[in-house]
């Protein structure tokens, strides 16, 4: 194991994040605050409780997940796309580092940043509404695994993308809509007849529902199913990444 190689990539990526620390942290804090003003303040005043939880508190897990999805995809895809774009990838490809080590470096750094942002949002939310976390350990596990899964997904996007437009394609067109439809701001039980059933085909529902369970102990779907869905998604991403490195897809000619 070339642990120094992993550390070099990890530190390189974290240095990149530090250079843009201001944007990285201010954006989610402002966005979260806006969501609170709109959903928590304006709408929340008309909805008293969902599943026995104050509406403003209810949306917090969904908000964190929304940011984790987009931040993870953006950071991880950009992290590997940038060296491909500038050509500096040659050095990583010619170095004595394995696939797993490259992944640990790039995805590990991106996931670290996502988890940090998730915690910052949680802290920001606490300024607006007091939130108790019923299962703090599970909350962290869920947060970390979701960040990891979406960073892997982002890594795949960064390898697949042929241009900067494609980098934003999947996050904007697929993940954000699925998140909004995935119960980030409501319980899917609140939806009318066909839609609540259809929602069960949306994988994001399981992630948000499971994460919400770690906060309030209530969920739309069974927490075991949520964990299973998360692990399946994680393994799927690992399998695709393994294939990418085995075939050299868009990395090596």
């Amino acid at each position: 194991m070339n642990h120094r190689g992993i550390l070099a990539i990890y530190r390189f990526e974290m240095a990149r994040f530090r250079r843009t620390l201001w944007q990285s942290l201010v954006t989610p804090v402002i966005t979260t605050s806006l969501y609170f003003v709109v959903f928590g303040g304006a709408i929340g005043s008309r909805i008293s409780e969902v599943d026995g939880v104050a509406y403003a508190a209810f949306i917090v897990p969904g908000l964190i997940m929304l940011s984790i999805f987009t931040e993870s995809l953006n950071n991880a895809s950009f992290g590997i796309y940038l060296p491909r774009f500038t050509g500096t990838i040659y050095e990583v490809l010619s170095a004595p580092v394995s696939t797993v080590e490259i992944l640990l470096g790039y995805v590990g750094a991106a996931a670290t940043k996502s988890v940090l942002i998730g915690l910052v949002i949680l802290a920001t939310a606490n300024l607006f509404v007091s939130i108790g976390v019923r299962h703090p350990l599970w909350m962290l596990v869920f947060l970390a695994l979701t960040a990891l899964a979406f960073c892997l997904f982002g890594f795949i996007l960064g390898i697949w993308a042929k241009g900067f437009e494609q980098l934003n394609f999947i996050p904007m067109l697929v993940v954000t809509p699925l998140t909004f439809l995935g119960g980030a701001f409501y319980s899917i039980d609140m939806l009318p007849a066909p839609w609540n059933t259809l929602s069960l085909f949306n994988p994001i529902v399981y992630l948000i529902s499971g994460f919400r369970w770690t906060f309030f102990g209530t969920s739309d779907v069974g927490v075991h199913i949520s964990v299973a869905a998360l692990l399946v998604f994680l393994l799927l991403c690992v399998a695709v990444v393994a294939w990418v490195f085995r075939t050299g897809y868009r990395l090596k000619s």
């Binding site: 120094r4 190689g5 550390l7 390189f12 050095e91 170095a95 580092v97």
Partner: peptide
């Protein structure tokens, strides 16, 4: 930073 990165990358 970049030369330190290279050295580390090569273990």
């Amino acid at each position: 930073g970049t030369v330190r990165f290279s050295r580390g990358l090569f273990g």
